[in-house]
Design a binder for these strands. Structure first.
Lengths: 207, 207
DNA sequence: CATCTATGTATACGCTGTCAACATTACTGT
DNA sequence: ACAGTAATGTTGACAGCGTATACATAGATG
């Protein structure tokens, strides 16, 4: 139960320490350059110690991606809660929160969606169910918006997919560096994602 | 000038062969598991031969991403050309082509957008200018659609960004496996991307 | 206190990207 | 035609990587 590190043979809370340190490392070097051995060194343990807590490097990455999806669910839900009863505003703020989170954590976002995780090897249920949680919030939001007559009476899943795609695409373009100069700063991003989502709501065609 | 391989000390066209073989390898194993040494073996040369044609592993990946952006530009432009004079249809077909290409080449798409390429080390102009070409086509399309009164009179760049984000997001969700079961098959994808883009045009709100 | 299990270490293996030194071929100018 | 040089390929070496195996230590349980 000794939580101080460096003094005892047993670390006390390696599992948590590893995840925290890994997130830090990935933030520094990107998910591509991240290595288990450097992580172990940073955590002050031997390079095979992580294997007592994670079957694989892949398993560690999955764990980190999970935390990413959890905070994604939290943030978007919080954003929606702040505008309860105003589905239109809720949708916009959810999207803004999504994009802002991606901008704050580009490397983790890439880890979550970029193909660094080997889906064949991972239990996959965990990750998918976490991602589903985030998506489900969106579905609920749209469903209630439909019932109050704000959103069109299209298939809910389709509406949700459209909004998700829009926001996700913007987030990925930003974190991928494709929008350099257009959307670097925090407030630019806030503005941009709100505008883009307004377009989705109002439509692009003339009337 | 001898183009037959395997008989001469000099290969004749290693550069091209390497790129072709690399694309095949990445298709098989994903961009994450791709290795230079395996590539060299596949091409039938020593493991350092690629360094005569590419400064880095990163440089090779950049070259492959470039070809990806080139075919993306081609395909979307072709799709648009087939419906010249009908901007609405053009926009939809451009998007469908974008998503279909991504579905056909998920690993290359991940390579292009997923953060596998180290932007610090790469000349970056090449890659960005290629990506800009693809984007510019979209901008032109929207501009002409605005002038013929089909699209709303919003800032062109913003409209282009919105459509790009939408389509790109859908493509990334599909290639990332986030839409398993919803959009696996080719015709499902065609249908889905067309529907989603119609939503962007018509808008989500009730009128 | 003895024992079992959880957790950490030491060592070894093959694979990786990359560098330096060398070999072979193609191209160049005289 | 031929010498010299640049382009292209090979060999060997190095450190770093993920991971399997065998061993060490400590906490928990009886």
């Amino acid at each position: 139960m000794n939580k101080r590190s460096g003094e005892t043979y047993h670390h006390g809370n390696l599992h948590g320490t590893l995840i925290a340190a890994a997130i830090e490392l990935i933030r520094d070097k990107g998910p591509n350059a991240f290595s288990l051995r450097e992580l172990a060194k940073k955590a002050g343990v031997s390079h095979t110690a992580p294997y007592r807590h994670f079957k694989d490097k892949n398993a560690l990455l999955v764990a980190i991606a999970e935390t990413g999806f959890k905070t994604l669910t939290e943030r978007t839900r919080n954003a929606a809660m702040q505008f309860d009863g105003d589905p239109k505003r809720q949708l916009i703020e959810t999207g803004v929160a999504y994009v802002e989170l991606a901008l704050d954590n580009p490397e983790i976002t890439q880890l979550m969606f970029g193909g660094f995780i080997d889906m064949e090897k991972c239990p996959k249920e965990n990750l998918d169910s976490e991602a589903d949680n985030a998506f489900q919030g969106l579905v609920n939001l749209i469903e209630s918006g439909k019932q109050s007559g704000v959103f069109r009476n299209e298939e809910t899943e389709l509406l949700a997919l459209a909004t998700w795609s829009m926001v996700h695409g913007l987030a990925m373009l930003i974190t991928g560096g494709q929008l350099c100069g257009i959307a670097d700063e925090q407030d630019q991003v806030r503005n941009l994602s709100a505008k883009v989502e307004s377009l989705l709501m109002e439509g692009i065609l003339t009337r």
